[in-house]
Structures are given as C-alpha cells and as structure tokens.
Design a protein around this nucleic acid. Structure first.
Lengths: 353, 353
DNA sequence: GTGAAAGCGCTAACAC
DNA sequence: GTGTTAGCGCTTTCAC
C-alpha cells in the first residue's frame, strides 16, 4: 500500500504538504500542488481512511441496524440512508438483527466499536432499555427508525402508526364493512405492530362498531391458512374485511384465501401496511397504507449529519403516510373492479393525507 | 470515550496487559485478568476498532457494492454476505452503484480507502476494465458476484446464466409453445441479461424453432405495456410465451397483460428469472428460474475470508439454479390450473437441476 | 507474566 | 507556503 510518506518523498515535499493538498487546507503553491498531484497519480495513491479516522476522531461512516433485508421496507430504508450519507461524503456500515434482541445489542456494540459517526436502528421495541442505554452512553448521535416515539425519546424517524392504522379502518368502514379483523405479526416483537393494532382497534371503537378479532401469526409464517380458516370458520361472526400489519402478510393472506377458494375482494377485502412496490403489480393490486421508507432512511441519516453540524436540537420526525387504494378492497357485497381492469396507473389513486 | 489507557490505569496494570487480556494472547494471570475485567466493566470500555485496525492492518470489515437495494435479489445477496461475514466476526460496509459505472468506480475506491479486507461487487459488465484494474491493483481480495466469468477472471460467484435461460426456453417448448419472445432490461448495462438472452436464443435455435423476438426495455420501466402491445400486435407472429430477464419485469409484464385484458397463462405464458420470494405468492404464481441469491452473497464473503486464511487458489464459483414451476406457464392452448388452486405448497414444484 | 516503547497512516499545531 | 513533530488507540516486539 502506498502511504502519504512515499508520495511526499516522490514529490520532494513533506508529508504535511501532501496532507494539505489532499484536504485543501491552507494554500499549497500551484507548482507544489502539481508535483504532489503527479506523485499521487504515479504511485496510484489513495489516502488511508483508517489513519485519517484515528487522528480526526471521525470515521465519516454511519451505521444502520435493521431487523432484516428480506423485507423490502427495510431494504428501501437502507437505500435512502445510503443515499443521504453518500451525498455528504459518508459511507455506511450495515447489519441485520434478524429480529433478535441479543443480536441487536451485539450489532450496535460492533458498529460503535468501529466508531461510526452516527447510528440508525430499528429496535425490536423502542421501550427496551438495554439498547437505548448503550446508545445514550455513546458519543455518537443515534436515531431510532420505524420505532414508536416514547415520551423521553427525541431521536426517532417514523410514521404515526396508530393514525395510519385508523385510516385503514375508516377506509373499510366507508366501504360498508362492519365486521373487521386484523392479522398481525407477533406484537411482543414489534412496537410498530402493537401501535397499528391499537390504532385499528381504537378507530373501530370510535366508530361504534364491534371490536375486531385480532390474530397473531409468526413473522415468518409461510402458511397463514390455518389462521384464516379459524377466522372465517364461524359464519355468524365472519369478518368481511381484513387488515394485515404488513404487506408481506397481506399478500400471503390473499394467496391463502385464493387457495381456499375465496376471491379477493369479492369474498373478503384486504388492506396491507407498508406500501411495498411490488404490491402495486399484484392481482388484485393491494390496498395499503404507504409509509415513505426511502425517506425514513434518508431523513435518519440527514438528521444525524445535521446534528453533527450542530444545527438544531433533536426532535422526533414524523413522516406523512398515505393510503393507496388498490383492487383488494371493495364495497361490501361487490366484486371490485371488473376484468379487464382500468387502464389508469394505480399511482393516481394515491391519496395524500 | 474510554481508552485502553484508562482501563490500564484503573486496573493498575500496563496497557500491554489489557491488550493481552482483550485478545487472549499470551497468558494473563487469573488474578490480573479479574482486575482488568472489573476495570472494563466499571468504565464500560469498548476497544476502538480504528486503533486496532491501524496497527494490525486489518479492519475486519468487508465491502459490498451492488446496483440497487430495491431489487430483492441484491438485498438477499447482501443478507447472505452479512451473515457469512458476521459468522467470522467481520462487519460489512455497503453501498449501491445505481447501475452507474462512474458511481461504481467511486464506490469501490471509497471502500478501498476504508481498507476493507475484501470486496464483493456486481459490476455493470464484468468485462469493463476500469474497475477490475482498481481491484487487481489492491491488496484486498475481491469477488465479482452475479457477473459473467471472463476467461482471465477467477474471482467470481454466480450462476450459469446461459444454461439457466436455456432451461426456461426448454420448459416453454415442452409445454408446446413454438413462438417465443423475450423481454429484457438494457443489455448493454448488464452482462447477466446478455447471457440470458444468448442462452435463450441459443436453446431455441438448437430446438430448431424460429428465432424469438427480443425487446429491450428501460430497467426502471414502470410501464411495459407499449412493448407488450407491439410484441403482440401482429397475430401471425404473435408469441404464445414470454421469457423475462428478471422477476420484476415478469411481474410488470403480467400486470400490463392483465390491464390489456389478457389472461396469464391462458392467453400467454410468462417465465421470470431470479426466484424472488414474493413471486411465489403472486396470482398467478410466477414460473421462474431461481438463483440462490442468499448463497451467492454468503459464498462471496466466505470465499474472500477463506482466501485470506490462505487456503486455496481462487476459482470461479458457479452455484446451481433451479426452475420453479408456478401458474404463469401452461400448455399451449390451456388455462393452467383451475380456480381454486391446488392446496399443495408451491415449494414442492421446485425441481433441482 | 508483565512493562516499556515503537510505530501503524494520518492531521494539526507550531515553527520558520 | 512549507517542514517538523506530537499523538490519535491500539498491538507487538523486546526486555526483564
């Protein structure tokens, strides 16, 4: 590896001058600059960021810990995070926690050992104290993403999950549905899911309708069919519309319904949550609450970088969601759009709230 | 930040002893070890990886550059890469090139500046010399992932794209289709797509059938409808089956077909490439050539880490693909599985080749 | 078994 | 405008 020392030697200057040239601090005489430039080119020199980091106590790297990359929601968030970091000349270290609390702590500690200048994290539950202590004790700014803001927590970028779930409920009720139900991932493992449940149940109560049944399924459940059969088993209490705590679940539910001989939305309406891209292309296209995942990642990186620059005090950032109306919901007793479907792009259905 | 120095002071030992304790090199007397352990706990000390890296010339970090995280294929590869790295105590730095050659080079240079101990990259085209030079000039091992092996390139983890595309062609022909076509992303921007085209066209030629039409679409094409209309416009030459160079495209194509009033597979069969998870849940579920994306990422990290350990010389790693038969393909003139669909899990249709 | 000291590659005072 | 030098946090000889 070529070092700054060799460059200095080749260019017949001191290493300080090379450093000044590289960082554009203090004036380097044009002629000297040229010699340094030639030396760098000749030796194919790239400054060692490790040496630089040790001295400056800044790695110009940001860390991000998410539950999983297999969920497009988080992949998109990382995408936005990377874009925002890159824009300001930062790099990103990333790892996944696999929805495991131990792994989550371990991941945070690892990234902190690498001296990242900021750290974004989707905690299993934002009220779990362990991780937050680790984070708070550290010099680096951190931001919780997707997590529910807690009263004492000011560093968080998310959407209002309760309000968003309420909108899903209202949409279904407007379509005439009265018996609703929710299928959700494990509530204990996700404060987001809990809040969505609360918002959904609360909205239905406010509308004076009977409380919805809520069914938890394992997050990785490949087969939601048993849950669905149980839910739809009793004709008297059979729901006519389902709210799913995320899009993957909603898609799995529609698939299972199909295999059970049910048609969506004719026999049952389904609403998802997340707004993943592919859900648009589904048949039927999914009605879903869209959260701006790319923006969440982007805002998290931006917030931490701004904070470093000492701009303003930390505040929770609550990003807007929207309801994207697709073909998986229809008025009670109707079969939704007929085939062939409308030609208009589904985007135009998007309603900003 | 607490340093090793403070720990040493607190424990009344030298920093060398603390270092020995941390790295478990040389024997530290149990009693001394206890004091150090207490000091570490009391001060909440975490070793600074930057200092460590500078001294040892190893960051214990791996880098990965992929075109985009929005494509589940690459997200899964990163997931596997992260898992393999983590297993051996390595961390990962990640960034995306957004299918841009300049950005690709920049990304590689950035990660190299961070002194990553290995670098995985999906190059736009593996035969583009620029990046490979950069990589070859460096001390760190690298691996191309997804890219087509070139004669002189030994560090690559991928599948046999040509053979895989041929299997797609054979599947369609077996079903009785004779007029085939392919819709692909920009060939100039992806050596994978080029190879798949070659494999598809070649297989059809070998089978003695008329050459398929091949249409390129922009990678980000939200609307493939015009292409589809053009392709299906002439009844005499109208293909009865389509091969798409990736699953997202295939899904978009099925969506567009639906909106045009066509039914898949009744009116036209569609085969994808990639094997993304959600494609299973689609209605109709997608017939697709599955590449083991997680394994590709995993193998890439593992290969570089093994190589560091000086095990064996670099060899191209060609991972097996498989054809997953879904509901989007059917015998010519038939409407595929009837509704309701079979109850058996789609996994059981998977044929290992 | 433990300590003293050199030095990894770089930046930033401080001299001149 | 440029050189000299100290030192960031750590590991690793080399002594003892």
């Amino acid at each position: 590896m070529t070092t700054i020392h060799e460059v200095a030697q080749y260019a017949q200057v001191s290493i300080a001058t090379v450093s000044r040239y590289l960082n554009d601090t203090a004036g380097v005489r044009p002629e000297t600059g040229r010699r340094v430039r030639e030396a760098i080119a000749a030796l194919d020199f790239q400054p060692n960021q490790i040496g630089r980091s040790l001295k400056t106590a800044s790695t110009r790297a940001l860390g991000i810990v998410i539950p999983s990359l297999e969920n497009p929601v988080f992949a998109q968030a990382v995408s936005g995070f990377d874009a925002a970091a890159r824009r300001r000349g930062y790099s990103v270290m990333m790892t996944t926690s696999e929805y495991d609390q131990h792994r989550e702590i371990e991941a945070v500690e690892t990234l902190l050992r690498y001296q990242v200048d900021g750290l974004a994290l989707t905690a299993t539950r934002s009220d779990a104290p362990v991780v937050r202590e680790r984070l708070a004790a550290n010099r680096a700014p951190y931001t919780l993403i997707y997590n529910e803001p807690t009263p004492d927590e000011r560093a968080v970028v998310t959407v209002d999950n309760a309000a968003a779930a309420a909108v899903a409920a209202e949409h279904l009720v407007e379509l005439g549905h009265r018996r609703l139900a929710m299928i959700t991932g494990r509530l204990a493992e996700s404060d987001r899911a809990s809040r969505r449940r609360d918002g959904f149940v609360g909205a239905i109560a406010r509308l004076g309708l009977p409380a919805p049944q809520v069914r938890e399924v394992d997050f990785s459940a490949r087969d939601v069919r048993p849950v669905l059969e149980q839910l739809l088993g009793t004709p008297a209490t059979r729901p006519t519309a389902l709210f799913c705590s995320n899009d993957r679940l909603a898609i799995a539910v529609i698939g299972a319904a199909n295999r059970m001989g049910l048609r969506v939305p004719r026999d049952i309406s389904v609403v998802g949550f997340d707004g993943i891209d592919l859900a648009r292309e589904f048949v039927p296209s999914l009605t879903t609450v869209v959260q701006p995942s790319y923006d969440i990642g982007y805002a998290a990186a931006k917030a931490m970088l701004d904070r470093r620059a000492g701009q303003d005090p930390t505040m929770p950032v609550i990003l807007p969601f929207s309801l994207r109306i697709g073909e998986s919901t229809a008025p009670l007793g109707q079969d939704g759009p007929t085939t062939p479907r409308p030609v208009c792009p589904p985007q135009s259905n998007e309603a900003m709230l």
